[in-house]
């Protein structure tokens, strides 16, 4: 009897496992649209997150906490910072990307369109409709796992260089974004887990245009 029960349990877990890893290829667009609909009408967002980087060239993980603000009113504004006090602050206003290093009092400005990295994609904010999504990303497929949908995409254009896959992880029930995973071609990865999301917070204009007094211009290669 025990052996039959054990075998049945294995069978059930295998079936669950299959369901957990179900590939919702056919309903991929549906899943994406569901997520995008959660962004619709959200003009201002504040996200507290934990960023975990696993690099093949480092023995240990890099874990940091940070905050992200997105304001889509009057053009997209973006601020991302990690550490408390902040160790790196990145803002985007219109087409200018500003990177600040408060500890060394250095900053770098560059045209946002010229940035060739995956985070620059996020600086443009999350897409709010299917057309915007398709403009930025190529949908590779959607997988279900442990109550989440994993939307696998390739960023379009030069930003795709070096990125094996970018994944938006959403909650299966409501389609809310829970984390963003990035895998690079050499096997390194990054995960940004959304710890707390606040929609419509009060924002200070200075948030996106920090004071550069005392800072000197640099070239962060």
């Amino acid at each position: 009897m025990q052996r039959v029960t054990f075998q049945l349990l294995i069978l059930i877990s295998l079936i669950s496992g299959v369901e957990l890893m179900a590939d919702t290829k056919g309903g991929g667009e549906q899943v994406v649209r569901r997520w995008l609909s959660t962004n619709a009408g959200v003009d201002v967002l504040k996200v507290e997150f934990t960023q975990i980087r696993k690099l093949t060239s480092l023995k240990s993980l890099i874990r940091q906490h940070g905050v992200l603000w997105i304001d889509r009113r009057a053009g997209a504004r973006f601020r991302w910072q990690i550490g408390n006090p902040p160790r790196t602050i990145v803002t985007r206003v219109k087409d200018e990307l500003l990177v600040m290093r408060p500890r060394s009092l250095q900053y770098e400005k560059s045209p946002a369109g010229k940035s060739k990295n995956s985070m620059a994609i996020l600086a443009g904010g999350f897409p709010r409709d299917w057309e915007e999504f398709q403009k930025k990303y190529e949908l590779l497929g959607v997988k279900s796992l442990n109550g989440t949908h994993r939307i696998n995409v390739q960023p379009r254009g030069q930003l795709a260089h070096g990125v094996r896959v970018l994944t938006f992880v959403t909650e299966s029930a409501k389609g809310i974004l829970q984390s963003i995973d990035l895998t690079l071609r050499d096997g390194s990865s990054q995960q940004i887990v959304f710890d707390r999301v606040v929609t419509g917070p009060q924002l200070n204009d200075n948030l996106f245009e920090p004071d550069l007094t005392g800072y000197r211009a640099a070239n962060f290669k």
Binding site: R53, L55, S57, L58, I62, Q64, W80, I82, G83, R87, T88, V90, V99, R101, R103, S115, K116, N117, S118, M119, A120, G162, L182, L184, D186, S188, Q190, F220
Partner: peptide
């Protein structure tokens, strides 16, 4: 190591780590 930690994007962090 500080620059790797502080890098905005993973690609920059990766390049520095090599």
């Amino acid at each position: 190591l500080e620059e790797i930690d502080d890098a905005f994007d993973t690609e920059s962090a990766l390049l520095r780590s090599y």
